[in-house]
Structure formats: structure tokens, C-alpha cells
Design a protein around this nucleic acid. Structure first.
Lengths: 334, 334
DNA sequence: CTGTTAGCGCTTTCAA
DNA sequence: TTGAAAGCGCTAACAG
């Protein structure tokens, strides 16, 4: 592939490979003139150092891995955008792995990365995660930063939003607008992310002296049609005045269910959904959304990873918590 | 990072590194018993081969690069999804690079990849005007497959949709529904993608004996507010009965502009937009869309790249053309 | 079927 | 300030 190598460069310049290598890496022990000569010829010949050789020798790959559930989820593609931006400023390369919520695949990816393919990992864990020991093993061998979907049972560096606060505020928003029968569509139950969102909902109800009604609570089945059917049943049986969906993927079945029952949103029923779809507010003025700062979260998580790689981060179990935004549809009286 | 290496494995097994290496790679010249012993110990000790060493020796990286304009564009994240799926079946790793439409960055990425970091490249180009020679240089050194946004001036392997047909059909669809003043929002003018889309629109008008009215044609300014203002002006001055947007990013300003002018979609004005937003048809029943098979295109492009890598592809300049789908909003009488 | 040996292209002591 | 030489972990001739 790459044509010219260090040896050839050195030969052409009548220098040793050591000197050329040092000159290219701007070592202080090389004279300015030599540096200049080397740099000039390198540029002229389009010299690109072989990363495998340099990695093998130096144990640095200039590569990080990003492990996420689904890249087509708006939240994650926005997060990757942020990660890529930071990686670029550090001259790093970014590998992408999708777990599709499969935690065995997730662990397999990480184990293979231990071979020294990357300098560090950014991960948002799969919903069915159940691999605490595996995670602990891996964290001991490679710098890992968890973002958004973190595992609460593991001490590690994490970047999240305040999931509790998001649903607490969303629930209060509905209560302030007169809602009393607020349905809740649960998801990510074995992640702190899902648990905290649910806690926020419960706490808001309690703080407003509204009893928790189990019949108003539904759990994500990971199947769009099934979810839609369940939501319809709930709408018919319980007649809630509002719904909170705890993940973006539940917004659509929710919307379908209401349409099928000829319920007008937000007149008959108000819906607040987690969503990072940029166009959501416009395309559907009837839905309010809880929007997470995905891009920023990617940037923050990556920045922390690079601090760790540069030995400039000293909080092994630090958690950075960013703010989500509730985008309200005041224009529609909701 | 990774702890154990070939030498240690070999030592523990009383074998040479060569034998162990061969056993791990399932070479036919190793006895079944030896293979079994090696594989067992390797698994037990969590042995992972060092990719840098293997790459340095064998000139295979098991890695491909994907270069795209924006990962947060639905089309591209869906395409990456397809690419990743195929890469996974080949046990390959996927590097992501975003150009943000900057063609200098694009060339810089590719040049750096020539160093041997990847076995091949999948690219959807930022522009085809400036860098033909650079592209040609690179294609000569590394397998490259272009997808969606291809460079028509370069002979290479390409996967696209039929851009001409998409807009031709969309335009006919509007004409069949009585539209005569069809505005067209142009974009990607320096790509064959953009040119062919425009040609499709023009041809459909001509074939239906409708004169082309330059005043109905607007060019993307790459700025959402600016686009919105221009579209509003066009709506006021020309009173079109319909609009075709040639990229997804123009749908939103278009929508805004109509709202601002209190135009009802599709009663007062019909809009057909390119869009790969999965939820678009549901969330906005007023917009018809031209949807590209992004996931499939990613899969096809990656499959072809792997065929090239495995010396099983013999059409150096082949172009595979996939079909886009026009999703019509018949339910709204449009 | 297995072992010996050389070397991929780079970085890094150590010596000059 | 520069050079010689060793070696990162693996693969692939070549020998046996």
C-alpha cells in the first residue's frame, strides 16, 4: 500500500533511520536543519509512517473504539459525531461497534480489543447487560469511559445525563397541566439509566400526592408491534390522560396506538417522549420531548478518555452529569 | 494491554511459535491433536493475537474505513449500519471518518489511510470538483468503493441509486395530481448525484409539456435560515403548487417556510422530499418522501469491497444501481 | 507434521 | 547531534 518507508527516506537523505524517525517526531535532539531537510523530503515523497510498525514498537495505536447499541438511533449518531470531533483534534482514529443490545457480543468486542488494537474504549452498554465481572476484568486492562447507558454496579468513569431529574421534571410538567393519570412506558430496566428514569416519575407523582397505579406502567417488549398492542390495551382499559415514554423507540408505537384509537394528541392525551430527533418538534407539534445533549456527551466522554490516556485524569470513579432539556409544545396549549 | 503472547503460549505447550501460529489459524498442516491442545490453552488463557504484529507481517489489517459527509444524516447512519453488518460477518473492523463536506479533509483522510491502516475504503464523497487527480492516485494504491455520492469523472467501483429516476418519478407523481408549478430545491450541484436529480425533474416537466421556469428553482445555501428565507420568497413571489427538495436537509426549512406563510400541506402546497427519516411518514402525514435504500446500499458496497479484497470481483468500473422508493401520502389525498 | 530462522517498519536504548 | 543495533509479536519461507 504505502510506498516509501523510513529506511528509504533515510537512505535518500544520507541519514540513519533513527535520525529520520526522531526528526519526523520533532525530537529536541535533532538539529533544525536536519529536521527541515527530513520534513521536506517526507512531504515531497508523501511519506506516511506505517502505523502497525509504530504501534508494535510503541504500544500506541492512535485509535479508540466506540461501542454502542445502535448507530441508527439519533442519540448515538449524534454522540459519535461529538466523539469523532474530539478524536480528530487528538489525531486519533475511531472504530465503531454495534451491539444491537446483545451483551455477549458486547463482551466479545471488548475482549478482542484487549489485544492492543485500541488505546481506549467509549461504551454505552446494551440493555440486557449482565456482565459485571467481564466489565471489571476489561476495565483493569484498558481505559474505558461509559457514557449515557452506564452500569451502576461498576466503579468506573462515567458521563450521563440526570435521568432521574429528566422524568421528574417531565412528570411535573404534565401534572402542572392538569394530568393525573400519567402512564409510563418503562425500558432499560436492568440499567441504572432505566431505573433512575422510573424513579424520577414515581417521585414526582409521590411529591404531588398522586398514588402510583401499576396498571398505568408498561414495560418495553423490544418489539414495535407488541408495544403498540400493549399501549392500545392500556389506553382502552385505563384511559390515561398522558404518557411518558422512557426511550425514543417507544414514541412511534405510542403515536400509532393513539392514532388507531382516534385519540387526538395533545387534546385527548398528552405525550412526552425521550427523543433526539432534531426535527421532532417541527414535524410533530403534538409531542413534547426530553432531549439529551448527545453531541456534548460524546465530546465530554471522549475528552475524559483522552485525559486518561494522557495521564491527566485522576478520578477513577468520577461521574460527569449533563443536563437534558425538555422541549415543550406550549404553542399547542401543552 | 493483552497479556499473553505467542511465544509464551508456545513455551507452555512445548511447541514452536510457528506451530502455534499455524494451529490458531487452522492450517491444514497441523495435526488435529495439536490444534486442539493449542486452541484449548489459548481459550483458557484468553489469548488474543496482537493485530499490529500480524498486520506488520502479513500486510492485512482486517480493517476498512468509511468516509462520509455527516454521520448524523439518517441516510449515512443507516448505510453505516449495513456496512458494519457485512464487516462483522467478515470479522473486520470499521473506522469512521466525517468530512463535514470538506474535500480537503477528505483527501487528507485518504492519504493518511494509504500508510496501511486499512485494507480498503468505502466513501461517499463531499464534492467531485476539486480532487479528481487525488482520487485517482489513491484508487491506484488501495481498493475503494464509492457509494451514493460518487464521482462521475472517475472510473471506479460504485454503488448508487437511480437519482434521475427518483426525481423523474416524483415529478410525474405531482403532475398526475394536477400540479403544474413545481418548485425544485437544488443541492449537491457539483456531484453527479445532484445533477442527475435535477435532470430527472427537468425531463419529467419536458415530457409532460410543462415549460421549465427558472424562477421556481432554488439552490441550497448550506444555511438553514437562509434557505428558509429564500423558500419563503419563492413561495410568495411564484406561488408554486408543489415543491421537490433534492436532499433531506431541505425538508425542514421548506416546512418552516410553509408554516410561516400559513400554507397548509398538502392542501395548499404539496411537498416531496428526499428523506431517510424512518418516522417521517408517520410523524408528518403531509410530506411525501423519496427514500433511499441506505441500509442495503451500505451492505452492497461493503460486500463488493470484500469481494475485491478476496480477489473475487472483476469489474474495475462496475456500477450497481439500487432503487429508491417514493412513499406517497395517498391517505391525505396526495 | 513441526521447527528454525529471518524480517515486516518502526522506536529506543546505548554508544559515539 | 547522530548512528548502530536490538526487538516489539507475528508470519512465512525453507528445512527436516
Amino acid at each position: 500500500m504505502g510506498n516509501i518507508n523510513l529506511k528509504e527516506l533515510a537512505l535518500a537523505l544520507n541519514l540513519s533511520t533513527a535520525t529520520v524517525s526522531r526528526a519526523l517526531r520533532d525530537s529536541h535532539e535533532i538539529s533544525p536543519e536536519t529536521k527541515k531537510k527530513v520534513l521536506e523530503l517526507a512531504k515531497k515523497l508523501n511519506y506516511e509512517p506505517n502505523p502497525a510498525a509504530s504501534n508494535l514498537r510503541s504500544n500506541k495505536t492512535k485509535t479508540i473504539a466506540v461501542i454502542i447499541p445502535e448507530i441508527t438511533n439519533n442519540f448515538f449518531s449524534q454522540a459519535i459525531n461529538g466523539i469523532e470531533e474530539i478524536a480528530r483534534t487528538h489525531d486519533y482514529h475511531v472504530l465503531i461497534y454495534q451491539t444491537h443490545e446483545n451483551s455477549e457480543l458486547e463482551i466479545a468486542f471488548m475482549r478482542r480489543l484487549l489485544s492492543g488494537r485500541v488505546d481506549g474504549i467509549l461504551i454505552s452498554v446494551a440493555s440486557e447487560t449482565n456482565n459485571n465481572q467481564d466489565f471489571k476484568d476489561i476495565i483493569n486492562q484498558l481505559p474505558v469511559v461509559f457514557f449515557d447507558r452506564v452500569n451502576e454496579n461498576i466503579d468506573a468513569v462515567k458521563v450521563t445525563t440526570d435521568d432521574y431529574e429528566s422524568t421528574y421534571n417531565a412528570t411535573c410538567h404534565l401534572i402542572e397541566r392538569g394530568c393525573r393519570k400519567i402512564a409510563y412506558l418503562m425500558a432499560l430496566n436492568n440499567l441504572s439509566t432505566g431505573k433512575k428514569r422510573f424513579e424520577g416519575y414515581r417521585a414526582a407523582l409521590t411529591d404531588n400526592s398522586i398514588a402510583i397505579n401499576e396498571a398505568l406502567i408498561l414495560t418495553d417488549s423490544n418489539n414495535e408491534d407488541e408495544n403498540c398492542a400493549q399501549i392500545k390495551k392500556l389506553l382502552v382499559n385505563e384511559q390515561p390522560d398522558s404518557i411518558i415514554t422512557s426511550i425514543e423507540n417507544l414514541a412511534l408505537p405510542c403515536y400509532y396506538a393513539c392514532k388507531d384509537l382516534n385519540l387526538n394528541i395533545p387534546r385527548d392525551i398528552k405525550i412526552i417522549s425521550f427523543s433526539n430527533l432534531k426535527t421532532a418538534p417541527l414535524l410533530n407539534p403534538s409531542l413534547s420531548t426530553i432531549t439529551q445533549p448527545a453531541f456534548e456527551m460524546g465530546k465530554e466522554a471522549a475528552s475524559i478518555l483522552f485525559k486518561i490516556l494522557n495521564k491527566k485524569y485522576f478520578e477513577p470513579n468520577g461521574t460527569l452529569i449533563l443536563k437534558s432539556t425538555i422541549i415543550k409544545r406550549e404553542s399547542t396549549g401543552f
